[in-house]
């Protein structure tokens, strides 16, 4: 009997390992393939569509996209837009989240429900109004316009996430600081923020990835290659007369890598934040 249960358990574990291994191949293979193809020579790429080992390892594709296709400009644009969005959104939303938790506790619940509504909002609905507004303000085809639009969907979600983090700060600590004569803002910056630092950092990284990956609004609002982001640059590269898949793969690696690296750091925080309220 004992042996039978042990055998059963062993079988169960082997089953689990097999299942996750199959899934892991499904999940990770495209990234592996992306890398392999990005270091193949173009002849090899087309002649051996299923070979896993490059005949000759080459960085020519990377050199080509960075130097000849000027991908550097777009990397800079993407970085500028994503970093400014993250910075401004972090300031605005941490102020708001703290304000909601401390000064509007009753309104807070309703507010966070409204905020999450904005997050579920279809991006496509605001395409035309944004195009019209940015046109009127003269911000079409500028990085500033893009930052403004990105704030609109990052701030509400960030507030929602941060409210959860600020709620964990015990009020006693703040009262102690206040008694010692610190002002509200001082208490906030010196006492509260350090306590929620992990939450703040993961929210910021999440916003950065969001902005870094955004496509639709960048497609609508920017057109010239010197202003636009990496996503749009890659999209236009696909429309070229002669599509060089080796270049595409190298360019893709450049977009994917920061996202994947950052993501593995923050996935735990984000997962917790998203459905925290639902856990009993």
């Amino acid at each position: 009997m004992n042996m039978l249960t042990r055998l059963k358990r062993r079988m169960g574990e082997i089953g689990c390992y097999t299942y996750v291994t199959v899934l892991a191949v499904f999940a990770a293979f495209p990234l592996l393939w992306l890398f392999i193809c990005s270091v193949k020579e173009s002849g090899d790429l087309l002649a051996n569509p299923t070979s896993m080992i490059p005949q000759k390892f080459t960085l020519a594709n990377y050199h080509n996209v960075m130097v000849n296709l000027g991908l550097g400009t777009n990397i800079r644009n993407s970085l500028m837009v994503s970093l400014s969005t993250t910075l401004i959104a972090t300031v605005i939303s941490s102020l708001a989240a703290y304000g909601i938790v401390r000064f509007f506790p009753k309104l807070g619940n309703m507010m966070s429900k409204l905020l999450i509504m904005t997050y579920m909002f279809p991006a496509i609905v605001l395409v035309i109004p944004y195009a019209v507004v940015m046109g009127k303000l003269g911000l079409t085809n500028t990085r500033l316009g893009l930052v403004l639009v990105y704030l609109s969907f990052n701030v509400p979600y960030a507030v929602w996430l941060l409210v959860g983090f600020f709620k964990t700060v015990p009020i006693g600590i703040e009262e102690a600081a206040r008694i010692d004569g610190a002002g509200r803002l001082q208490t906030f910056v010196r006492v509260v923020l350090p306590l929620v630092a992990p939450g703040l950092v993961s929210t910021a990284i999440y916003m950065f990835i969001n902005a870094w990956n955004e496509f639709l609004y960048a497609l609508i609002l920017t057109s010239s290659s010197s202003i636009t982001t990496l996503s749009i640059k890659l999209h236009t590269m696909q429309g070229a007369d002669v599509l060089n898949w080796g270049d595409m793969m190298a360019a893709c690696m450049v977009v994917v890598l920061p996202s994947v690296v950052f993501f593995s750091f923050i996935q735990k925080y984000i997962a917790g934040g998203m459905t925290e309220g639902a856990v009993k």
Partner: peptide, 14 residues
């Protein structure tokens, strides 16, 4: 979790 981190443009191209 790798797929979750992919930017959409990279999903499309790969």
């Amino acid at each position: 979790i790798i797929p979750w981190a992919f930017p959409t443009i990279a999903i499309a191209i790969i």
